[in-house]
Amino acid sequence: MIASGQPWLISGVLIGTALALMLAEAVWPRRRHRMPLLQRWRTHLGFVLVNMPIERGVQALVFIGVFGAVTGYALHPDFGLLPQTGLPFWAQGLIAILLLDLAVWAQHWATHRLPLLWRLHRVHHADRDLDMSTALRFHPLEIGLSMLFKLGVALALGAPLWALIVFELLLAVLPMFNHANLALPLSLDSMLRLVIVTPDMHRVHHSTRRVEHDSNYGFCLSIWDRLFRTYRARPSGGHEAMTIGLADYPGRESMRFGWSMQLPFR
């Protein structure tokens, strides 16, 4: 019952979060938009419509295959690394969420280091503005590879079902939050980024400057960038002056859905 309703739960949280952030961005914007908003959103909606069947298909594999694995329906009940530890079920879940977050950080780092993966990931970075909708802008090939990678990590860990649901909810909500064009009070931002990735922290990652966009890879916990020395507190010229996007494509091409879908093959 939980597994079958999980995709709808995530969709509901996703839509609710998107609407709340759209309102917050309108009331407390961090930067002035450089590109026409509706044209960008139309392209990003195109990515949502293309990626949704891929996401739902892989989610079905996750919550059928993994649920069977950790409950003994498909594999041995002790399948995976975490059940071997003998830790309480709640502790296994917390460790699973922590390690899945680290795995996503490592995957993001790899997309900037491996040329083939960067070809796909630069579709995300081609956006010339940044708001909550940028979190939905990913090439379907990257979405498919990313979800298969998470599936493999979850299976290897033997992650409890409840931990997978919590992690998928975090993965639905927090990227929209840390891509948001949202002006948080600086004191609040400073406190939040001690634990989680804030909009000001992640915005640095979308700079056209290589030294800045090769930093701040996290989506949930900020500890990984601090631990692996990829943390950058702010852009060198300040948030208002920084240029967002790809230096190779300074025009308005990224607002076109067809161009964006073809970008990995250019």
Score class of each variant (00 low, 15 high):
residue 160 P to Y: 11
residue 187 S to M: 09
residue 210 R to T: 12
residue 196 I to H: 03
residue 140 P to Q: 09
residue 192 L to I: 14
residue 153 V to A: 01
residue 202 H to N: 05
residue 193 R to D: 09
residue 114 L to D: 00
residue 155 L to V: 12
residue 121 H to S: 04
residue 138 F to D: 04
residue 136 L to Y: 13
residue 144 G to T: 00
residue 182 L to F: 13
residue 134 T to N: 08
residue 130 L to N: 09
residue 129 D to N: 01
residue 126 A to R: 10
residue 128 R to F: 02
residue 109 W to C: 03
residue 133 S to H: 08
residue 122 R to D: 03
residue 185 P to H: 14
residue 154 A to W: 04
residue 190 S to Y: 03
residue 154 A to R: 03
residue 112 H to T: 09
residue 127 D to N: 02
residue 171 L to K: 01
residue 137 R to A: 07
residue 180 A to F: 06
residue 174 L to I: 13
residue 187 S to F: 12
residue 199 P to Y: 04
residue 175 P to M: 00
residue 198 T to S: 13
residue 162 W to P: 04
residue 183 A to L: 13
residue 170 L to N: 00
residue 138 F to K: 09
residue 204 V to S: 06
residue 148 L to V: 14
residue 165 I to K: 00
residue 166 V to C: 15
residue 200 D to K: 15
residue 142 E to Y: 08
residue 128 R to S: 12
residue 206 H to I: 11
residue 163 A to G: 06
residue 149 F to L: 11
residue 164 L to P: 00
residue 156 A to Q: 05
residue 113 R to C: 09
residue 109 W to D: 04
residue 132 M to H: 14
residue 208 T to C: 05
residue 170 L to I: 14
residue 156 A to H: 04
residue 120 L to M: 12
residue 124 H to V: 08
residue 201 M to K: 08
residue 188 L to M: 13
residue 158 G to S: 11
residue 113 R to I: 04
residue 205 H to P: 05
residue 201 M to H: 12
residue 183 A to F: 02
residue 115 P to H: 11
residue 137 R to N: 06
residue 135 A to F: 06
residue 132 M to G: 01
residue 168 E to F: 13
residue 202 H to P: 09
residue 136 L to A: 13
residue 194 L to T: 07
residue 205 H to W: 04
residue 187 S to Q: 12
residue 135 A to Q: 08
residue 161 L to V: 15
residue 206 H to W: 05
residue 192 L to G: 07
residue 191 M to F: 13
residue 161 L to S: 12
residue 193 R to A: 06
residue 156 A to V: 12
residue 207 S to H: 10
residue 177 F to W: 14
residue 176 M to K: 15
residue 178 N to Q: 14
residue 207 S to M: 08
residue 158 G to K: 10
residue 140 P to Y: 10
residue 120 L to R: 02
residue 208 T to N: 01
residue 199 P to Q: 07
residue 126 A to P: 06
residue 121 H to F: 02
residue 150 K to R: 15
residue 172 A to Q: 10
residue 138 F to C: 01
residue 160 P to I: 12
residue 187 S to R: 15
residue 138 F to R: 10
residue 135 A to S: 15
residue 150 K to C: 07
residue 177 F to P: 05
residue 120 L to S: 04
residue 155 L to K: 06
residue 115 P to F: 11
residue 191 M to Q: 11
residue 183 A to P: 00
residue 111 T to V: 14
residue 134 T to M: 02
residue 200 D to G: 10
residue 144 G to V: 06
residue 154 A to C: 12
residue 173 V to W: 15
residue 196 I to Y: 12
residue 139 H to N: 00
residue 163 A to W: 03
residue 210 R to Y: 07
